[in-house]
């Protein structure tokens, strides 16, 4: 705990330093997410949390306009040229062409880019000198207390409410949901987001089952209890991640970048 406090204190001072906007990408503000301990949603008392160091994170998801700049600079990531191993046929299908957002370009420009694969998101982040957040980082950032939510909902209710509704016909722009205590916008309620290690959840698609070898592997680990049975919101995110493959491009899945603090 003392360790945590130290970290917190340290990073409370940080915004005064040179951060917010990180180097190359003047347009995109990054904010400091304090470090902490990440507990997976299904942990037991005996399971150790994953320590997460403080890091920088884009304040919003990457937008279509921003991603357009990327594909302009990197033609091999244009829709007609991309290798299907790295992005399937749904890649950027909301666009009118390789470098054309279509007639709604004004509106679309400010909405999060979706229909992007993990490989594309990775390449974008690398281009920006950044990286994708890990699951632990993303979950810690996403747990940040909202400034204010509609109808004074709790964050969990807000998340479940969003998960419960089919996709909006038109994806809203960034910064239209809520801001959290770290200054991050739309961590929930707008899109799903890629994480660096989205494939870390060992699921065989069936949330109730696991394979024989995993049983052999883990049967000695003792009794277990679910940390918080009601944390279905996190469960839904894990299920979502578990259904993904790196080349998938999905209408409600985008990303934002992170960066380590050196």
């Amino acid at each position: 705990m003392k360790f945590l406090t130290t970290i917190l204190l340290f990073f409370l001072c940080l915004p005064a330093l040179a951060y917010p906007s990180s180097s190359e990408n003047a347009g995109k503000k990054m904010v400091v997410v304090p470090g902490g301990n990440y507990y997976s949603f299904l942990v037991t008392n005996s399971n150790k949390p994953i320590p997460v160091a403080a890091f920088l994170m884009d304040e919003t998801a990457v937008t279509n306009a921003e991603f357009l700049e990327f594909v302009k600079a990197n033609p091999s990531w244009q829709r007609s040229k991309v290798n299907r191993l790295f992005a399937d046929a749904n890649y950027l299908k909301q666009w009118a062409g390789d470098l054309d957002l279509g007639k709604d370009r004004q509106k679309l420009g400010n909405t999060p880019v979706v229909n992007v694969s993990w490989f594309a998101a990775e390449a974008y982040a690398k281009w920006k000198g950044k990286r994708l957040p890990t699951v632990a980082e993303w979950e810690l950032a996403g747990a940040g207390t909202p400034d204010k939510l509609k109808k004074n909902m709790s964050l969990t209710d807000y998340i479940l409410d969003w998960y419960n509704r089919p996709n909006a016909q038109q994806l809203p722009a960034t910064k239209t949901t809520y801001r959290n205590e770290y200054g991050l916008y739309d961590m929930h309620g707008l899109i799903w987001e890629w994480t660096f290690n989205f494939n870390s959840f060992i699921s065989k698609g069936d949330s109730r089952a696991t394979t024989e070898d995993e049983k052999k592997l883990f049967c000695a680990a003792g009794a277990m209890s679910v940390k918080d049975r009601k944390n279905y919101a996190a469960f839904l995110r894990f299920s979502y991640r578990g259904s993904l493959k790196g080349s998938y491009c999905i209408a409600n899945l985008g990303f934002r970048c992170a960066k380590s603090i050196k």
């Binding site: 490989f119 494939n199 959840f201 060992i202 790196g246």
Partner: peptide
């Protein structure tokens, strides 16, 4: 990680 994604291998580092 990239190779694991291409090979559909899941892994996670614990504490």
């Amino acid at each position: 990680r990239t190779l694991s994604v291409l090979l559909n291998v899941q892994y996670e580092k614990d504490a």
